[in-house]
Amino acid sequence: MTGNIWAYRLTVGRLEGTDLVGYAVEAVDGSIGHVDKHSSETDASWIVVDTGPWIFGKEVLLPAGTILRIDTTERKVYVDRTKEQVKNSPEFIRDKHLGDPDYHRSVGGYWGDAPLGRF
């Protein structure tokens, strides 16, 4: 992927001011959980996905650049990565990592280097 991994793509279909909390999140190969928190800061946007029992309650931070599209009718966020990539992503601990620039660099490096999922 080229460009800023922390910026939404122009083709995402996101409506300004849309609250994504509670939206289901779909990887290219199935459901991965729901949005627990999100940020829409310019060039620093992300969603926190609560994976529930799928990977033992792990939360993951996905940069906005991994989002393929947002469907406000279905209340779903589609990402262009696989379940395995999400499972293997850097661990997210809310109290430790939210706002930590070193963690954000690590996550950005992981997702920026991870190949796009197959459609």
Score class of each variant (00 low, 15 high):
Tyr110Trp: 02
Val12Thr: 10
Ile55Phe: 14
Leu15Ser: 08
His38Gly: 05
Pro53Lys: 11
Glu16Phe: 12
Leu61Asp: 11
Lys83Cys: 07
Ser39Tyr: 10
Lys87Ser: 15
Asp50Trp: 13
Val21Leu: 01
Ser31Trp: 10
Glu59Ile: 09
Ala44Val: 02
Glu41Ala: 14
Gly99Ser: 02
Thr51Gly: 06
Lys37Pro: 02
Pro90Thr: 01
Tyr23Leu: 02
Leu68Glu: 15
Thr82Met: 09
Val49Leu: 11
Val21Arg: 14
Gly33Glu: 12
Val77Ala: 02
Val28Gly: 02
Gly117Ile: 07
Ala114Gln: 08
Tyr78Ser: 06
Ile47Tyr: 08
Val49Lys: 05
Glu91Pro: 03
Val86Trp: 09
Val60Met: 10
Phe119Cys: 01
Asp100Arg: 02
Glu26Phe: 00
Asp71Pro: 03
Leu68Phe: 14
Lys58Val: 15
Glu16Val: 12
Ser89Trp: 01
Ala27Gln: 06
Glu16Leu: 11
Asp43Phe: 14
Glu91Ser: 09
Asp29Ala: 00
Asn88Cys: 03
Gly3Ala: 03
Glu74Leu: 14
Ala114Ser: 13
Gly108Ile: 13
Arg69His: 12
Ile32Thr: 05
Arg105Gln: 15
Ile55Gly: 05
Asp36Lys: 03
Asn4Glu: 13
Ala44Lys: 14
Leu61Met: 15
Thr18Trp: 00
Asp36Glu: 08
Arg118Tyr: 15
Gly108Lys: 12
Pro53Phe: 13
Ile70Gly: 04
Glu91Asn: 09
His34Gly: 01
Arg14Phe: 10
Trp46His: 15
Arg69Ile: 08
Val25Ala: 00
Val48Phe: 13
Glu26Trp: 04
Asp36Asn: 05
Thr42Glu: 08
Ile47Phe: 10
Asp100Thr: 03
Thr42Arg: 12
Trp111Ala: 00
Gly57Met: 11
Arg69Met: 07
Met1Leu: 04
Val49Ala: 05
Ala64His: 14
Gly112Arg: 02
Phe92His: 13
His34Lys: 03
Glu26Arg: 05
Arg81Ser: 11
Gln85Thr: 13
Asp100Phe: 08
Pro53Met: 14
Ile47Cys: 08
Gly109Phe: 12
Gly57Pro: 06
Lys96Ala: 09
Asn88His: 09
Gly112Val: 04
Leu62Asp: 14
Glu41Tyr: 13
Gly99Phe: 11
Asn88Val: 00
Asp95Phe: 08
Tyr110Met: 01
Tyr23Ile: 09
Ala24His: 01
Gly33Leu: 04
Leu116Ala: 06
Gly57Thr: 00
Gly99Lys: 01
His34Asp: 03
Leu116Met: 04
Thr2Cys: 06
Trp46Leu: 15
Ser106Thr: 15
Thr72Lys: 09
Lys96Gly: 01
Tyr110Gly: 03
Arg118Leu: 14
Leu62Cys: 14
His38Ala: 09
Ile32Ala: 04
Lys76Met: 14
Tyr110Leu: 04
Asp95Tyr: 07
Thr66Asn: 07
Thr2Val: 10
Glu59Ala: 10
Phe56Lys: 05
Asp95Gly: 12
Thr66Gln: 07
Ser31Gly: 00
Asp50Pro: 05
Leu10Pro: 11
Thr11Cys: 03
Leu98Tyr: 13
Ser45His: 13
Gly65Met: 07
Leu98Ala: 08
Leu62Asn: 10
Ser39Ala: 06
Trp54Gln: 14
Ile47Leu: 12
Leu98Met: 13
Leu116Gln: 13
Thr2Ala: 09
Ile5Phe: 08
Trp111Thr: 12
Arg9Gln: 09
Ile93Ala: 08
Trp46Asn: 12
Asp43Val: 08
